[in-house]
Write a protein that binds this DNA or RNA. Structure first.
Length: 194
DNA sequence: CTGGGGATCGAG
DNA sequence: TCGATCCCCAGG
């Protein structure tokens, strides 16, 4: 399997769809874990009220304007980490939140980190997968083509296999709340709840 | 300095 | 349904 090929300027929504089926790999002292991306959400620039950067460019959000392929990692609710892949057309802002993975290798390591056995619940949510993969703010700004955390191009997932629905937990986002920017692979049992 | 709020999770 | 838990960031 080869390196993810879209570390270039492209529409955030298009990258979100293309990321489905690709693999995320994390190498740490504990060993190597990997999984297939089965659920994502696209977050745009200033016109997307659901996007962090729509509130303004700050120390935290400025990375959404930076190089495509960088990791945008932040802590949510003071408890969990979330990881995004920076993706946007040139001169714009945007990122794709990785929401769920189908565990592929290093299952035992993930089970240990998560404290649960059931494979289905190891990476079925943005906070869960970061925990399972050992992803922390140390990875913020890391280029996702390089070790120890990187993407690999998977087989293309056809449009007929992709579901597009509104994003989760952005009730404050007004009109944008309804945009169908959450994408997941239909009939895949490893997506997050709802 | 202060305090309100959040792209979540899991227990009850 | 709710609490955990803390960092970000705007406002004073």
């Amino acid at each position: 399997m080869k390196q993810w090929s879209e570390f270039r300027f492209a529409e955030t929504v298009a990258v979100a769809r293309d990321l489905l089926g690709s693999h995320l790999v994390s190498e740490t002292a504990d060993g190597v874990v990997s999984g297939k991306i089965v659920e994502v959400e696209a977050y745009g620039g200033f016109s997307d009220a659901g996007s962090h950067i729509s509130r303004g460019v700050t120390e935290r959000t400025k990375i959404m304007l930076d190089r495509p392929g960088l990791a945008y990692v932040y802590i949510i609710y003071g408890v969990h980490h979330c990881i995004n892949v920076v993706a946007h057309p040139e001169g714009q802002a945007g990122a794709v939140l990785i929401r769920a993975l189908e565990p592929l290798s290093g299952i035992d390591i993930m089970q240990k980190r998560r404290g649960v056995q059931e494979i289905r619940s190891l990476c079925s949510g943005p906070g869960k997968l970061c925990r399972a993969f050992g992803i922390t703010k140390e990875h913020n700004g890391h280029f996702l083509a390089e070790q120890p955390l990187y993407l690999l191009q998977g087989p293309q997932v056809g449009d007929e296999q992709i579901a597009a629905v509104p994003r989760v937990n952005i009730d404050y986002a007004g009109e944008a709340k309804h945009w169908p920017w959450r994408f997941y692979i239909k009939n895949n049992r490893y997506i997050s709840r709802k």
